[in-house]
Design a protein around this nucleic acid. Structure first.
Lengths: 117, 117, 117, 117
DNA sequence: GTGGTCTAGACCACA
DNA sequence: GTGGTCTAGACCACC
């Protein structure tokens, strides 16, 4: 599974894993009902502690993004549309905030959009 | 100086001070060559330890946003254009990343811009 | 790690650590990706306060000479060429200044080079 | 008198004044028996505390670089050759050290001299 | 009064 | 165990 960990940030590793899985799911690189690596496998391939992966999987399960069928492995949930919709809204919100900041710095919306094209 | 500290966040106090000063500088509420509160003063008015303020001032100085004249106090740099330019680029960069994410989720640039207007 | 601290100088301890690590890196005694002592370890072996070591490590990190992987330790950066190049330029710059001073005192470049051989 | 004070350094102001006067003397911009500004004048023109200038002048007098004829003002000493010779040797020594450092970084003397021409 | 350095030690999250 | 943050308070040089 394509997960990159950045050690130079304040975001804890377990949270980075959560975000990465969410990203892969919303991008449909990970598809509903697809099996994902076991805790041990992922921990090994990322050279991190299994406890850390466990914590991430626990959170993902609480968010209903994955389900673990005990002894049979861990799978992406069937329904992931909510995740996608929430992510879109979150991103639009972030951009709006940043635009506000830029406007405070004296840029007009037109100038900003021009820089973005 | 108008600085608000939020204790309920993961962002450390010293970094909040850095961000606040940067904000006040880019908004030109703090002007070039203007003196800012002494370490002890700010520490006192925020009810925090002087060392914490010192760390923030150290970072601001490394970013060339302030200059400290030992025994004479601390001042906003003469040239704050770098600070403003850097902030603009940072914000544009953030937005571009978010747009990329949205495009991966299936939105076109036109749709995105429409949501932002 | 072979670091000597001189208490009889105006250079603060944390800066001496920075200079020593830079020296060891440019001399390739410390190699890329090599782990260096933990903050507590070095503090202990130098009989100084961990905060002082931390400050030195912070500066070295800002200079991109080391990277700290939280909870996993501190390492020499992969790419130390910047450090070496910066040091070379710094030294060449210092010498050029000194030569200028000597020329002002009436020596020619030839005379200076002769004294240096 | 052409003296520049750098507030962004660890060298105290009084010492910077000492160094600047020494520099001007060795460069023969200030000549033997020439009168230099009074403490009050210099303090005023540099916008610093007279005590600071006083301390610098005391040191310069102890080094026999200036003499104060009380009530008549302060003058450059008659004999300044020793100062010049000492400075030359100091500079040559500094350069030799820097060259050693560069050689440790893998540069040959020829390469170094080439960078300096 | 100012900033600069350092100590001693606490508490936290993370692994 | 690791690093990250913060406090409380000391001492210093300088002005």
């Amino acid at each position: 599974m394509l997960i990159n960990i950045d050690y130079g940030t304040r975001i804890p590793i377990y949270e980075q894993i959560v975000l990465e899985v969410e990203r892969l799911v919303t991008l449909e690189i990970l598809k509903p009902n697809e099996q994902i690596p076991s805790i041990r496998e992922l921990a090994c391939s990322l050279s991190i502690n299994p406890n850390t992966v466990k914590k991430a999987y626990d959170i993902l399960e609480a968010k209903k993004i994955i389900v673990t069928k005990s002894t049979k492995g861990t799978y992406i949930s069937e329904n992931i549309d909510n995740a996608k919709k929430a992510k879109k809204e979150m991103l639009i919100g972030k951009i709006k905030n940043d635009i506000l900041e830029l406007e405070k710095l004296g840029l007009s919306k037109e100038e900003i959009f021009k820089s973005l094209k």
